[in-house]
């Protein structure tokens, strides 16, 4: 069960975009922006409020890779695996992140909810390949060695 504050927040967002089916995607984006993920119960609630079925809302939410029903870590690390990054060896970078954090292709978020590691198809920064994004910050020309430094830096920031 979600805290009442989640529903209050959702109500604010729904009021902003209007109770209509077309508001679904912007509402979902704002909710995810707020909580770094899309709580399932909230999606059901939004569907009821804007007059679409739960199945329809679920259909839209799962169509887009961007939406996640799993809570994400404080730092969302997006490893670009687009063509340019791939040929410039993005795979070892992803492996390094996963190995260091004990993650895999199935497990994306550390148990302490600090890190989430995902791949993305292209960040549009091919000139900087291989590229990694941590939340909104771009890290160009990554190497497996730099991964260690980056993680240390992020952990330090926590402390």
């Amino acid at each position: 069960m979600l805290d009442q504050t989640f529903y209050q927040k959702a109500d604010e967002i729904i009021a902003f975009y209007g109770k209509k089916p077309a508001s679904l995607i912007p509402i979902m984006q704002d909710i995810q922006g707020e909580y770094r993920y899309l709580p399932g119960e909230l999606l059901t609630y939004v569907a009821g409020q804007i007059g679409i079925t739960e199945a329809k809302a679920y259909s839209v939410a799962t169509f887009y890779e961007n939406f996640s029903f799993e809570p994400k870590g404080k730092y969302v690390i997006k490893v670009c695996d687009g063509t340019a990054c791939h040929v410039r060896k993005s795979a070892p970078i992803l492996e390094k992140f996963q190995k260091e954090l004990g993650l895999s292709a199935k497990k994306h978020t550390t148990d302490d909810m600090l890190f989430t590691v995902e791949t993305v198809s292209c960040l549009g920064a091919c000139g900087l390949a291989p590229t990694v994004m941590v939340n909104e910050e771009v890290h160009p020309k990554m190497t497996p060695e730099k991964v260690l430094e980056l993680l240390q830096e992020l952990r330090g920031e926590k402390g």
Binding site: I52, T53, E54, A55, K56, Y58, S59, T62, F63
Partner: peptide, 8 residues
């Protein structure tokens, strides 16, 4: 609307 598509 009990059924819908999921994923892609």
């Amino acid at each position: 609307g009990a059924l819908g598509f999921a994923e892609r």
